[in-house]
């Protein structure tokens, strides 16, 4: 296998998903936004994913508190736990884990739903009826993620910090008032926004590959399974790689400001 055969599918995906995003933005500016479909997607992405995201980030906060509590206790650094947890969660872990969980729960669902529609000719039926699959299928999902993911992240950040508080006060003997004071004095608007703004980018990294792989399903139901796997793997990797570059970008902006 040479470099060309390895990179060719990636280039096809990159081109295809960029085109899909472009077409979605074009439909958006044409005013072809179907409010009911967007609300349905916000419900699917936001409300229905809330328990999964809260459990994930809550336990991340708890595990972090436990690990840092054990590690820092050796150096008398337990008092730094609120600072470390709040900064890590708000800047990185909240947005990243919320996005990864949304990719796993919602992105995979989107691909399998769209893929099944493809296999059963429902996508062709939309086109045959003179409607646009981009406006009917893709745009509501892209907007649904764009609206819901930042809100989920706000919840994820809060629960993650509260998870740290739970372990900090019960297992590590930290005073809850002290914990809250430290959290509030540590996090500033720049910290919060550098994490929060990432969600808007991550929302595209979840929804666009999910729709792209769904629309390009080949080979029947087996193809739906393959496409679903591709979506989750691609989205998760894209979120982690994107996180690095966005962190660097926001770091430069913060320094510049």
């Amino acid at each position: 296998m040479n470099y060309f055969t390895m990179t060719y599918p990636f280039l096809i995906f990159l081109g295809g998903s960029t085109k899909l995003l472009y077409l979605s933005i074009k439909e958006f500016f044409k005013g072809k936004v179907e409010k009911d479909l967007v609300i349905e997607q916000v419900y699917q992405v936001g409300i229905k994913s809330l328990p999964v995201v809260l459990v994930t980030t809550g336990f991340i906060g708890m595990v972090m508190a436990l690990q840092f509590g054990i590690g820092l206790a050796k150096f008398g650094g337990k008092l730094y736990i609120p600072k470390i947890i709040s900064l890590s969660i708000v800047r990185e872990l909240g947005p990243v884990f919320a996005s990864i969980m949304i990719s796993a729960r919602v992105g995979s669902g989107m691909t399998s739903e769209i893929g099944s529609m493809r296999v059963t000719e429902q996508i062709d039926a939309i086109r045959a009826l003179g409607a646009s699959p981009i406006a009917k299928i893709v745009l509501p999902r892209v907007l649904g993620c764009f609206i819901a993911l930042p809100v989920l992240t706000a919840f994820a950040n809060t629960i993650g910090i509260l998870g740290g508080l739970l372990v900090g006060s019960n297992d590590l003997g930290l005073d809850p008032n002290y914990y809250f004071q430290k959290v509030l004095s540590t996090i500033n608007v720049a910290d919060y926004m550098s994490g929060f703004m990432k969600c808007f980018f991550f929302s595209f990294l979840v929804s666009v590959p999910a729709c792209y792989f769904g629309l390009n399903v080949k080979g029947g139901t087996k193809g739906v399974g393959i496409a679903t796997t591709k979506t989750v793997v691609t989205s998760c990797i894209a979120i982690l790689i994107g996180d690095y570059f966005l962190t660097k970008l926001f770091w430069v902006i913060e320094k510049w400001l």
Partner: peptide
């Protein structure tokens, strides 16, 4: 293109083999 085809598709209907109803 797809936008221009809309007018054609209003005049030509397609009956899919398995109905292709939106489930």
């Amino acid at each position: 293109n797809e936008d221009e085809l809309v007018e054609v598709r209003k005049k030509i209907a397609y009956v899919f083999q398995n109905g292709a109803l939106f489930d």
